[in-house]
């Protein structure tokens, strides 16, 4: 992935001095980051370092104890539920477990977010949008399948299609390639780049898959001990002499 940031404009997400703990366990301490428009930002850290907590705070699934989170110019920590629901149309979230609804077909999974937000969308328009995102992820033939009939990679693609159907401006990826074989993982990473090119999205990607990181990252934030330990491009961090950073790249 090139480091060419000429298209990058304003901050899509600004996380300032966020603190989050669960009882005695402090997960995020005075953590700050910003995501520029059109940027792919990877948050890198060990398991249990608070990466998933961070993006759950950004989407409003968790409340930080302290600090502020601005998404597309709106402060979300104090936002009321209706506004939060409206904001979520513009922010997609790809879950690590895919979170496809077991009891629904692929078509119903994709239609679910649509009927919430665009209640007056015609049947033809819904069908067109469903086919468009399915074709984009290369799984048009899976439209009437149940999630249990899909492979891990296919599920990930369908989950991404469900995220894309609302045409979000920002996508939050929670370990998108975890549990996939290297070839499928590479395919998903490439798909993420295609999505960014087609939909002009900004993304925060949580990952420890270094192949995915190398392919997708414009910039990397290292989350260590609940803090932003280092930031830079893949090449900059790879050349770092700091042992804690080097451990990830070796």
């Amino acid at each position: 992935m090139s480091d060419d940031n000429t298209q990058i404009k304003e901050d899509a997400i600004v996380v300032s001095h966020v603190h989050k703990s669960f009882g005695e366990n402090v997960v995020l301490r005075d953590f700050s980051l910003s995501l520029k428009e059109g940027e792919n930002l990877v948050v890198l850290g060990k398991s249990g370092s608070g990466k998933s907590v961070l993006i759950k705070c950004i989407i409003g699934l968790m409340q930080p104890d302290k600090g502020s989170i601005c998404v597309l110019g709106d402060e979300i920590t104090t936002m009321e539920q209706t506004k939060l629901d409206e904001m979520r149309v513009r922010v997609g979230f790809l879950f690590q477990s895919n979170a496809l609804y077991d009891s629904m077909t692929v078509r119903e999974n994709l239609e679910f977010p649509l009927r919430r937000h665009w209640a007056k969308t015609s049947r033809e328009e819904v069908d067109r949008l469903v086919m468009e995102v399915l074709e984009h992820v290369g799984l048009a033939e899976a439209i009437d399948m149940m999630p249990e009939e899909l492979s891990g990679g296919m599920r990930k693609r369908i989950a991404l299609a469900r995220t894309l159907i609302l045409k979000p401006k920002i996508i939050l990826y929670d370990e998108p390639t975890t549990g996939l074989d290297p070839i499928t993982g590479k395919g998903i990473s490439q798909l993420m780049l295609n999505v960014q090119a087609k939909y002009n999205t900004s993304s925060i990607i949580i990952s420890h898959d270094m192949n995915c990181v190398k392919m997708t990252a414009n910039r990397i934030v290292m989350l260590i001990d609940g803090k932003c330990y280092a930031t830079g491009t893949y090449d900059e961090l790879m050349k770092s002499g700091d042992k804690r950073i080097k451990d990830f790249f070796d």
Partner: peptide, 9 residues
Amino acid sequence: DAMEVSGTN
């Protein structure tokens, strides 16, 4: 959680 982030209560 997926339902919630897609704007459904």
